[in-house]
């Protein structure tokens, strides 16, 4: 069999391995480059799954938190501040461990509320438990970004809204929120990149990889362990992440253009200053 045909066969066997489709057993010896690229790429499905869903859910939650933190009402502001402090002040790694060890304590036979039995076993699985932690974590970081942007909404915009007789929800939806998003967007792009990078921690932090179905770094470290050679598997995983980062920058750049489209000549493209730290 030619090398190309062999590689196609490998992709068919292992391309969806990380979600349990294809070969049951991982290769054990004589790893080809094609196998390594395929397996690690297959793991990226999990990174995308965690990243996309946590980003979407975290975005909604972060908006609520940012508004709560900016609220003059104490009973709204204090909980939001506390939430943000806890999730920004502690390592994500510890949050994963804590969440996992708390979730496995849930009664195995399920919670019974009003005679209904809610199964709880799934909460300790990575796809649910880790997603929950990632969502809360990114919500806290994004809320801080949105809160900062909210405080920087120009006074003139608000006065103009008053002059047009816009109040309450209409004022928020049509003036405050779009401006807040526009101001927050570059920082939020960074947060999104960090979130995708943080998804690599999931399978190293207590959450077990069910039937060896893990993310890209899980497979990369599996391969590096088996081959005693870190110089192939880790660079492949790094390459995938650089590609993913470039895609994210492009995608967020498109949104940024849309957010800024009413400003002639200003910020036509997102000047991405890769802030490697959040």
């Amino acid at each position: 069999m030619s090398a190309a045909a062999e590689c196609l066969q490998t992709i068919a066997d292992y391309g969806l391995r990380s979600i349990g489709i294809g070969e049951r057993l991982l290769p054990r010896s004589d790893f080809t480059l094609c196998q390594q690229v395929t397996l690690i790429g297959s793991g990226m499905i999990w990174n995308l799954y965690f990243g996309v869903l946590a980003l979407a859910a975290g975005f909604v939650l972060a908006n609520g938190l940012a508004l709560a933190k900016a609220s003059p009402r104490r009973w709204l502001r204090r909980p939001a501040e506390g939430f943000i402090f806890v999730f920004r002040g502690s390592p994500l790694f510890i949050q994963f461990f804590l969440a996992y060890s708390a979730l496995v304590l849930l009664p195995r036979e399920g919670l019974s509320i009003f005679g209904l039995t809610l199964p709880t076993g799934w909460m300790a699985r990575a796809w649910a438990g880790a997603l929950l932690v990632l969502t809360l974590n990114t919500a806290a970081y994004s809320a801080e970004i949105f809160h900062g942007a909210l405080r920087n909404v120009p006074k003139g915009d608000l006065e103009a809204a008053d002059a047009f007789g816009l109040t309450g929800w209409a004022r928020f939806r049509r003036i405050v929120w779009p401006t807040m998003m526009r101001l927050a967007w570059p920082a939020y792009t960074n947060e999104a990149i960090f979130l995708f990078h943080a998804t690599t921690l999931v399978f190293f932090s207590g959450f077990p990889a069910f039937r060896q179905e893990g993310d890209s770094l899980y497979y990369a470290s599996y391969l590096a362990d088996k081959t005693f050679n870190p110089f192939v598997a880790y660079p492949i995983a790094a390459g995938y992440f650089i590609l993913l980062t470039l895609c994210l920058i492009w995608l967020f750049g498109v949104v940024n253009q849309r957010l800024n489209r009413h400003l002639p000549g200003q910020a036509r493209r997102l000047r991405y200053r890769p802030n490697i730290i959040r």
């Binding site: 990149i193 990078h197 943080a198 690599t200 921690l201 190293f204 770094l217 990369a220 470290s221 590096a224 870190p230 110089f231 880790y234 995983a237 790094a238 992440f241 650089i242 980062t245 470039l246 890769p274 490697i276």
Partner: peptide
């Protein structure tokens, strides 16, 4: 270092 999760470095550098 940019664009690559730091965890990869933490796993890679000590072995390398």
């Amino acid at each position: 270092v940019r664009g690559v999760p730091d965890v990869i470095f933490f796993l890679f550098v000590p072995i390398a």
